[in-house]
Design a protein around this nucleic acid. Structure first.
Length: 898
RNA sequence: GGGAGGUUAGCUCAGUUGGUUAGAGCACCUGCCUUACACGCAGGGGGUCGUGGGUUCGAGUCCCCCACCUCCCACCA
């Protein structure tokens, strides 16, 4: 690395009035990369923390859901890094078999070419080129988002190491008898021309028809009626089934029906799966084209006839009349023919569910095919128990039941795909039919002692390789330093939509191959929706590009919005107006720093502060800071990103800016005429509080915090290179001070009340107002005496008297309002004004409300069970409340009477 | 047919083990360009917490019924 580039690009420029994220975001991303801040050496000291990115498909660009997940992962990684962990967020991409192949095929189509024309090898070259292009895009987008991934460890599911892991896993499962090859009914996608797994089939409700067909029974005048939604499959019927206990049909057992149009004999069989109540209680059986019928066929030894081919067109076995027709065309034609023959006796509307190929949209064609399968039931049991025993935590845990249900009803997983893009199945065939499964061709030859082997043409389901992701990325099956350091990983953050596709398979394979869970917690995010809660989709046209949002609001505002909206178990309605609000928060942070830097003179950030020597406002904000830091850490420990962000927002804006920075104005000479009230070390405290607040905010808002932090004089004492490496405040600075927190709480309430009274009494901002306060709380009067300048400044008062010997009385031209706030008696003396009608109405309404509250509190306090059973603190609270309400009532009455 | 989640202010959502007058952002009303911030400041209005029961001194919070909305799973042809 160039030595000169190691200098932080500190901005010693003037701060603009409005923050401009575009002016610094890329600068810092470059700096972090150059400094290799997120790259971890292979060996290191201290505890480790690891998150694996859910690898995005190389097919495209990141969408808002990726932005959400990345923001959360980066938040956790940065937080742990600042806490001193060797924190690794490992990035990578998924080859995404079908999806990517389709994209490239579409591209070829537009060039007037095709995959078949190119041939396998040339086609794969094209896909690799495509992948190189998009992989770069994804990295670029994560960079823009501020992701602190370790790019030196980037992986791709088809790279050499991961391919080795895939072959190893396949061979081991084969040797254990858990992977096998066989002829079974599978979900076939005619459009994709491949088998797909059960998970890739989406059930859709379809308005169809139920066709009632009448078949003659052989050797009698009797006929039987069967009902079907797919009349075209009748050409492949080889039996008719009824329930074993169905009295109506027992006599048919030894007989056969004759299949119209075809003339085939159909055996009658008795089988439990038939529902006596449905239709006539008789079911036509088409073993080749229906999963149920396939099983029935096996149970009863029925023949199997393929009438629909893999391309979705009728086969020769369907008869000349139909051969070559598309399956839906064939349906129309068969209905016509059946009607002519008088076989079709009734048609009724029928609402039913039909499996569709999730990726290509057309109805799936179940058919019998030779494929590779993985028997996952034993692995599923372990995965199931991991959640049951609490070793694996699903967040939110409402997913536990779904997890249990899915895993306990799991069926063999069809893992072979008739595609080109993917991990070629590590099985080789000899001309005589011998099958050799091995890690490589060399191994296959060595094992079998022959070299006339041909590798299986098919590839593996994409999810087979992603299922190994948490350990294959760390070097498994080799025993690498990274694998030893970072496996098992800590937490997985992903969307609930791939809980079974991916999460369950990682858990199963992790337990199987490494004997450990790949992570101990899974934080499932909701779906990002639009402001109205609608699902984002291209067809709806309501999608948003995270890059556009970054441009408009800044990466930090986007990240903060996503993180604060991530509440467990709910989808995320992404409202641009809300994001604008959080952009305002970024601007607030910027301007707080701008204020501080313009007022602190030559003060610097302090690593520690002796809060004994500080005045109450300083002790108060340090105490609040410590409390906030502690709470934020606690929330992050339990993955409550939303609450952690809320805490930060309210601390920074509601306490630091709204109150503390205002408290500093008289002391820092920004208070105009009310200024000139020196207090010790205010500048140091302002800078130190900002320093720590920025550190607390850094995991959510990396750019803004780095930019501002490196402007704070003395930040180098904390960490010379980057805020990303500065310690995360843990709330244990020893600044907590319950007494001062209570006192300042009383002060802020007092100030709010005085401001509110001014408005109620119709007193203008330029009128001279005198306030008298006094309290019986020990120490409070002394405290208020000290804070007189603040009270005067923040309420624009002419005069403040603490516990005056004599209260100013009422006069013709002025009024006196009395109230009681937080145990402090309050008297406001102001020029008499006429109440506006609106104000009068408001006060009357208020009075009614207060009187209602008094009545209900009195009722509660006169209830003996309440007094006897409620805790003392609650009863005391009610009494205190009643007293305050009474004061308020008197005050309101006084205001109304003028 | 199973299962999960939701129903709280005009909108989108928080709400800890049940405990004062239920919160936030945006929107709305009033007054402010108060030398950090109009992407701002101060003040304010607005909710019988989906319906109906129950437990309790006390229920948005716990229990039951119902209604409506969302989603997931499922081989009734």
């Amino acid at each position: 690395m160039d030595q000169n580039s190691g200098t932080p690009p500190t901005a010693d420029t003037e701060m603009d009035k409005v923050f401009e994220p575009a002016s610094y975001e890329q600068k810092w991303q470059r700096y972090w990369t150059e400094q290799k801040i997120f790259e971890l050496p292979p060996e290191g000291e201290g505890p480790t923390f690891c998150i694996m990115i859910p690898p995005p498909n190389v097919t495209g660009k990141l969408h808002i859901g990726h932005a959400l997940q990345s923001a959360l992962q980066d938040l956790l990684t940065r937080w742990r890094r600042m806490q001193g962990y060797r924190a690794l967020w490992l990035p990578g991409t998924d080859h995404a078999g079908i999806a990517t192949q389709l994209m490239v095929e579409r591209q070829l189509e537009s060039e007037g070419s095709s995959r078949l024309e190119l041939g396998r090898e040339a086609f794969l070259e094209r896909v690799w080129a495509w992948k190189e292009n998009f992989q770069g895009n994804i990295r670029h987008q994560l960079d823009l988002l501020g992701a602190s991934c370790d790019w030196s460890r980037e992986r791709f599911t088809l790279d050499e190491g991961l391919s080795e892991a895939v072959a190893e896993a396949f061979v081991r499962l084969y040797e254990e008898g858990l992977i096998y090859r066989g002829e079974y009914i599978v979900n076939w996608s005619p459009k994709l021309n491949t088998a797909i797994s059960d998970l890739e089939v989406e059930m859709k409700e379809v308005r169809g028809k139920l066709y009632h067909l009448e078949y003659p029974v052989e050797g009698s005048d009797e006929t039987v009626v069967v009902a079907t939604t797919r009349p075209e499959t009748m050409l492949g019927d080889t039996g008719i089934a009824f329930h074993p206990e169905d009295e109506r049909y027992q006599h048919l057992l030894e007989k056969a029906a004759i299949l119209p149009l075809v003339g085939r004999r159909l055996r009658f069989v008795a089988d439990e799966v038939v529902d006596q109540e449905f239709g006539t209680g008789l079911v036509k059986v088409t073993p080749f084209h229906d999963p149920n019928d396939f099983e029935m066929g096996q149970r009863h030894g029925l023949d199997s006839v393929q009438v629909i081919g893999r391309d979705g067109h009728m086969t020769a076995a369907a008869g000349e009349e139909f051969a070559g027709l598309d399956r839906f065309e064939a349906r129309r034609k068969i209905i016509e023919r059946l009607r002519e023959e008088g076989v079709l006796i009734r048609v009724e509307d029928h609402l039913h569910n039909v499996g569709h190929s999730q990726r290509s949209g057309e109805p799936v064609e179940p058919l019998v095919s030779t494929q590779w399968f993985c028997n996952v039931s034993s692995m599923a049991d372990r995965a199931l128990n991991a959640v049951k025993d609490g070793e694996l935590q699903l967040i939110p845990d409402s997913w536990n039941k779904t997890w249990e249900h899915w895993l306990s009803n799991i069926r063999p997983w069809c893992i072979s795909r008739q595609l080109w893009w993917g991990h070629r199945i590590p099985a080789w065939y000899a001309p005589d039919g011998e099958v050799v499964v091995a890690r490589s061709e060399e191994e296959a030859k060595r094992l079998s002692g022959r070299d006339d082997l041909r590798q299986d043409e098919d590839v593996l389901d994409t999810w087979f390789s992603s299922g190994l992701w948490p350990f294959s990325t760390l070097g498994w099956p080799r025993d690498t330093a990274d694998f030893r350091s970072f496996y098992p990983t800590d937490v997985l953050i992903t969307g609930y939509d791939i809980l079974f596709f991916w999460v369950a398979r990682m858990v199963m394979s992790g337990l199987h191959f490494t004997d450990r869970l790949p992570f101990s917690a899974v934080h499932l995010t909701g779906l990002v929706r639009d402001a109205e809660g609608q699902k984002m989709s291209k067809t709806r046209g309501n999608t948003v590009d995270p890059l556009d949002l970054i441009e408009e609001y800044g990466a930090d505002a986007l990240r903060f919005t996503l993180c604060i909206l991530d509440s467990p178990g709910r989808d995320i309605p992404l409202d641009p107006e809300r994001m604008a609000g959080y952009r305002g928060f970024c601007n607030k942070i910027w301007n707080a720093a701008r204020y501080a830097l313009s007022r602190v003179g030559d003060a610097e950030v302090q690593e520690s502060l002796d809060h004994e020597e500080l005045a109450a406002p300083e002790r108060w904000i340090l105490s609040r800071l410590d409390a906030t830091a502690e709470q934020v850490n606690a929330k992050l420990e339990i993955f409550r990103f939303d609450e952690a962000c809320s805490l930060l927002y309210h601390f920074f804006w509601g306490e630091l800016c709204d109150w503390y920075l205002e408290f500093t104005k008289p002391a820092l000479g920004a208070g105009g005429e009310a200024g000139d009230a020196p207090r010790p070390r205010v500048g140091e405290v302002v800078l130190t509080v900002l320093d720590r607040s920025l550190r607390l905010l850094h995991p959510v808002m990396p750019y803004l915090t780095e930019e501002v932090w490196q402007r704070l004089p003395g930040y180098q004492k904390v960490q010379p290179t980057s805020i990303a490496l500065a310690p995360f405040p843990d709330g244990k600075a020893g600044w907590r001070d319950e007494v001062v927190e209570e006192q300042v709480a009383a002060l802020t309430e007092l100030i709010s009340r005085v401001r509110n009274l001014r408005q109620e009494l119709g007193v203008g901002s330029k009128d001279a107002v005198r306030v008298e306060v006094s309290s019986e709380t020990p120490g409070m009067d002394a405290f208020l005496e000290e804070q007189r300048p603040l009270l005067a400044f923040l309420c624009r008062l002419e005069e403040v008297a603490v516990a005056p010997a004599e209260s100013e009385g009422e006069r013709e031209d002025r009024l006196v309002a009395r109230d009681r706030v937080s145990g402090v008696e309050l008297v406001v003396v102001a020029p008499k004004k006429d109440l506006g009608e609106a104000e009068r109405q408001r006060l009357e309404k208020d009075l009614a409300k207060v009187e209602g509250a008094i009545a209900s509190t009195e009722k509660r306090l006169s209830n003996e069970s309440f007094l006897a059973k409620a805790p003392d603190s609650v009863v005391a609270g009610a009494r205190a409340q009643l007293q305050e309400l009474e004061e308020r009532r008197l005050q309101l009455k006084a205001s109304l009477e003028g």
